[in-house]
Simulated scan of single mutants.
Amino acid sequence: MLRHFGAGQVAVLDGGLGKWTAEGRPLEHGTASPRTARFPAEARADEVVSKQQLINGAGLPVVDARPRARFEGREPDPRPAVADGHIPGARNLPMGELYREDGTLRSDDELSRAFAAAGIDPARPFVASCGSGVTANSLILAARRLGGRDARLYDGSWSEWGADPATPKEIGAS
């Protein structure tokens, strides 16, 4: 998301703070002393796909990061007035399959196999979706780690698509 808004130097703490502290790494305590800075955020419009673009045929595969049961419509969506299922033709690669139990990203080989099992080539353009437009970024992160540079985000994701009675929906596996 930071890259989308123009940050060029971005890093991810693989495994998060939990792994950092489990490894005995140092932490600072006390009141933080923030520095004054300016970050002129500028969204890169070509990295986000809208619902209308998908309806019109964006020409890219859609990959949904939600858990398989929600994607297939076997479990209801947690948001009221949002239908079950997925965008027609979408593929499913649950975000949880990208991470180990300790919260770190899986190895490149494991990530490659997960994308392949979902029928997606991470080096080719695709649209990442999820429930609300947040966890889809894990698909983009994993694809970037594998060398992909043209994954796009459907920010509205299922919360927008599934809440619109006019959009088509599918139930079942992809």
Rank of each mutant, 00 (worst) to 15 (best):
L2G: 02
F5Q: 10
F5S: 09
A7S: 12
G8T: 11
A11C: 10
V12M: 12
D14E: 10
G16H: 05
L17E: 13
L17M: 14
G18I: 11
K19F: 00
K19C: 05
W20N: 03
W20C: 06
W20F: 05
T21A: 13
T21D: 11
T21S: 13
G24N: 02
R25T: 07
R25L: 15
P26Y: 11
P26L: 08
L27P: 07
G30M: 11
A32L: 15
S33I: 12
P34H: 08
R35D: 13
T36V: 14
T36C: 12
A37E: 15
F39A: 13
F39K: 10
F39S: 08
R44M: 12
D46I: 01
D46K: 00
V48Q: 09
Q52H: 11
Q53K: 01
N56M: 09
G57N: 06
A58H: 01
V62Y: 00
D64Y: 02
D64R: 05
A65V: 06
R66I: 04
R68W: 11
A69Y: 04
F71Q: 03
F71C: 06
R74P: 01
P76W: 05
P78E: 06
P78M: 09
R79M: 07
P80S: 07
P80V: 02
P80E: 10
A81P: 09
A83K: 10
A83N: 02
H86K: 03
H86D: 01
P88C: 08
N92W: 00
M95E: 06
G96Y: 01
G96W: 02
G96S: 14
G96Q: 12
E97H: 09
Y99S: 11
L105G: 08
R106N: 01
D109I: 08
D109W: 02
R113G: 10
A114N: 09
F115D: 03
F115S: 03
A117G: 10
A117Q: 14
D121C: 06
D121K: 05
A123R: 15
V127P: 00
V127R: 00
V127M: 08
A128D: 03
S129V: 08
C130T: 04
C130H: 04
C130P: 01
G131E: 09
S132H: 08
G133T: 06
G133L: 04
V134L: 13
V134G: 07
V134H: 13
T135M: 06
A136T: 02
A136Q: 04
N137M: 11
S138A: 15
L139A: 02
I140Y: 00
L141R: 06
A142Q: 04
A143P: 12
R144W: 12
R144E: 15
R144P: 05
L146C: 06
L146D: 06
G148C: 12
D150K: 08
A151L: 04
A151F: 00
Y154F: 15
D155A: 15
D155K: 07
S157V: 04
W158F: 10
W158R: 03
S159H: 01
W161A: 03
D164C: 05
A166T: 15
A166Y: 02
T167C: 03
E170L: 07
E170I: 01
I171S: 11
G172E: 04
G172A: 06
